[in-house]
Every structure is written in structure tokens, then in C-alpha cells.
Amino acid sequence: CHSECLGNCSQPDDPTKCVACRNFYLDGRCVETCPPPYYHFQDWRCVNFSFCQDLHHKCKNSRRQGCHQYVIHNNKCIPECPSGYTMNSSNLLCTPCLGPCPKVCHLLEGEKTIDSVTSAQELRGCTVINGSLIINIRGGNNLAAELEANLGLIEEISGYLKIRRSYALVSLSFFRKLRLIRGETLEIGNYSFYALDNQNLRQLWDWSKHNLTITQGKLFFHYNPKLCLSEIHKMEEVSGTKGRQERNDIALKTNGDQASCENELLKFSYIRTSFDKILLRWEPYWPPDFRDLLGFMLFYKEAPYQNVTEFDGQDACGSNSWTVVDIDPPLRSNDPKSQNHPGWLMRGLKPWTQYAIFVKTLVTFSDERRTYGAKSDIIYVQTDATNPSVPLDPISVSNSSSQIILKWKPPSDPNGNITHYLVFWERQAEDSELFELDYCLKGLKLPSRTWSPPFESEDSQKHNQSEYEDSAGECCSCPKTDSQILKELEESSFRKTFEDYLHNVVFVPRKT
């Protein structure tokens, strides 16, 4: 048989008469490798580009789960590009990614509803959504962080984005990388972005840091009482949809009607710091009717980097990364020049730590249904340095008659930039024990000054392991946590139920 035959053949030295091919099969003959313009397919066939392209389009058009959109890589027609490569849609070739590779997620039936953290986790790592997304989240724990972890990498949506009755959302900033909504599939009414009845939605994105392009379709905003109209108009300008909307697409009466839409800028007039305090004062603000001013709200939190936005980490279910302080308005003076500047002394802060701070007014709604208010920009203030805590785990070892090696770990709280350490030492008198000992005694162990690591005695271990207080009263049991108490109650309830079950099964009433 021919060298490319495997198993047997019907005619000697003829690659077209093989029972099976050793390498690849091409047009009725066995070959060692697939010549151009053919590609290896499933490690035994040679196919042309049209064959591989037909497989790709067949799966793409069917949208069946589990099928493969075949691509070409290293002269092979394979189910998908290997790690580190992405497909070129024009020629199906796998090309190296520039940075992290995109991950295209194809949605069944063309859309997916995100109504819980669990459903959001199914899209973790996706960068391109081939379909439409509907966000409908009523509640949950730590929602802002969970949504950002699972949806934060999405850069492109081919269909539309719909935010509907998501009472738990305060902001859409968890879509931190969303840059493009194509609108290839539109919501009824030709809408590519749809926001309806979101009672706590206050911000779409921080438009000073976020760009969003909507290729096709219109915007729809109705019944978002805490979303200011200025935020919607800003989205029109940034996304390129200005002029597409009709009169009733953006409701003037049901958007922002319960919001404090600040239209003035508060400026800080005085800032002073110490290692654990920050004193702030800002310019006074009074609405047209000074009785509408209820006070100020001061927001602050630790910020290692200057990239904080107002609604980071917030949701309507209680999660809030900001510390909020309510401040009463100052006494009002008739003389504008003698107006008191409101302020606040922030206490209990960490030394040498940068804080993000902003302040906003708290006002009631005027009778004319106009909203007044003022808010400052987010500023960054760093507390002063102070003395560091003591170095940890000092170790001293003498390696000769004239040297001592000293080692330690950095302090747990540096409280500033540590530039150097101060080492103090003092000579001590020799131990009298060394002169009084009889060095001729056998088995004498000389006193040693070398360091030995501390260890816990058996008594201390027994005390720590004991669940009861000892007789001397030195140790006591740790208080039980809520989960331990709940577990004990469940076990007790189970024992009672099981005992009742045994009584009912074992003891049967005697027939009379």
C-alpha cells in the first residue's frame, strides 16, 4: 500500500485506493498535508475557505447554543480562536489581540433580562453583547459592586439597553466600559436606550469621564423622579442622539420631579488639616426662599486615587461607600458681607490618608415646582503625618564578641513616609551569675543571650482551647457569634421535631 494509506488498500502504491488515510483526505486521495488554498479540518480532512465560511455563517444565523462559528488559524479551520487571539470578521482569520481579548457573548432569543446578581454573573467577562440587555433589578445585597464585577467589562451592545423598574439602582456607572450601543435591534418605538419607572436612579454616568455613542435609535425617559433633566440632556449631547427624540420621548413632568437638581456650584473657602482632623468651610448658599434650606450634607471617604465619582458603590438597598454628615444651616444675616460661612470639623480620621470630599445642599421643593440647590466639586484632601507606631517583631542576635545583629519589621501604621529608623542602645553591667558559677561542674549549661522565638506554653494553649472559665478566673470563653447562636437554635429545633416524629412513629394507638 501507499505510504499515506492506513489499515489496508485495494490497489498497491495508489493513494486513492486506501481504506483510511494516515494524515489527511483531499478529493478522494490521501495526502501528507493540505496544500494551499485548503485548510486542515478536524485533523483528517482538507477543506477550502468557502466550506469553513459556510459553517461560520450557519452557526451565526441559527443562534443555536453550542454550535461553533468556525475560524481560520495556522492553516486550520477550527471552532474558535485560541487564547490571546480574536477573529477578523472580513476573512475569519485569528489575529493577536492588542491588550485583553474581546469576548463576544451571543444571547438566546436576542435579549437577556438581568433581574438578579445570579443572572448578571452569566455575563461575567463579556466585552461584546450580541443582542439586547434588559435591566430589571428590584433589590439585593452589595448590588453596585456585584454588577460592576460582572457587567463592568461590557464595551458594546449590538441591540438596545433597557432599564425598567430597577428600584435598587442609583447610577449606571457599573457599566464602566460601555462605549457603544449599535441599535441594530430596537425596542418598540425605535428606541435604543429605554429608561422607565426607576424610582431611585439619580445618575446615568459621570459624563466628564465617560463617552457613549448610540449609532441608531432614540432615547426614552419616563417616570424617573430623581433623575434630573440636565442629566438626560447631557446624554443626548454626548451620545449623538440630540435631535432624534420626539416631543413625548422625554417626559418633562415625570423626570426629576422629586430630585434636588443642583444648578449652582458650592466653593470651599477654608481648608485646614491635622493628622486626624480636617476643618472645612464653604461659601454660604440661600435659595430664593431661605426657609427652603434644610441644611447641608457632607460626604467623605478614603480615596487612594483621584478618580472618585459621587455615586460609586451606591445602591438604593443601603450600600453606600460614603460617610454622610448632616449639618444645620448657619444663622442668616441681613448683611451679605457678614454672612457666616458654614463648615464642619471632621474628626477621627487616619493620618497621612487622602480623602475625597464634597458637600451639597438639602432643600425642600418650592411652590413653583422649581428645584434649587448647590453642590461642590469633589475635592481631595490629605491629612498630615504623625509619629508612626512601633516597629514590629524586633530580633537581636550576637554573632561574635563585638557585634549584635538587630532586625525588625516595619510598623503596622507608618502614618507617613518613613525615611529612617533611630536605634538606641545602652551598655549593661555583666551578670554576677557568670562569676559565681563553678565551671568545672559536669552538665553545666552556660547562660545564653542568643534570641529564641517566643512560644506559647501548654497552660496558655489549654486556656485558649477551654470553653469555660478556669477556677483562677484568668480566662473566659469568647462570646458566641450570631451565626453560632442561630445554628444552635436550628439544631435544637431539629432535635425537638425529630423526637416528636419518633414518638408518633414508635407509639401507635392500640386498636379498641
Rank of each mutant, 00 (worst) to 15 (best):
K103M: 06
K103T: 15
V104Y: 06
H106R: 09
T113N: 08
I114A: 02
D115E: 15
S116R: 13
E122T: 08
R124I: 14
V128S: 10
S132M: 01
L133R: 00
L133A: 07
G140M: 03
L143Q: 15
N150F: 06
L153S: 13
L153E: 09
L153K: 13
E155T: 08
I157F: 03
Y160F: 09
Y167A: 13
L169R: 00
S171P: 00
L172D: 00
S173M: 13
F174H: 07
F174W: 12
R179M: 09
R179Q: 14
R182I: 09
G183N: 00
L186A: 09
I188S: 11
N190H: 07
N190C: 13
S192L: 01
L196S: 10
Q199K: 03
Q199C: 01
Q199R: 07
N200P: 05
R202G: 08
D206N: 06
L212E: 00
T213N: 05
T213A: 13
L219G: 07
L219T: 06
C228G: 04
L229K: 10
I232G: 01
H233I: 09
M235I: 15
E237F: 09
G240Q: 15
T241L: 09
K242G: 15
N248P: 06
A251E: 08
L265T: 07
K267Q: 10
K267I: 14
F268A: 05
F268H: 04
I271Y: 15
K277Q: 04
K277L: 11
L279M: 04
L279S: 06
E283A: 10
P287Q: 03
D289G: 01
D289S: 02
F290I: 15
R291P: 01
D292L: 06
D292W: 14
L294F: 09
G295W: 09
M297Q: 10
F299T: 11
F299A: 09
K301H: 13
P304D: 14
Y305G: 11
Y305R: 11
N307T: 07
D312H: 10
N320C: 11
W322V: 05
V324G: 07
V325K: 04
S338D: 15
H341E: 11
P342M: 10
M346A: 14
M346D: 00
G348S: 14
K350T: 08
P351M: 11
Q354Y: 15
Y355L: 03
I357N: 00
K360T: 04
L362H: 14
D367T: 08
R370G: 06
I379G: 06
Q382K: 09
A385W: 10
T386A: 14
N387I: 05
S389Q: 05
P394W: 08
S400W: 06
S401P: 12
S401F: 04
Q403H: 11
I405G: 09
P410L: 07
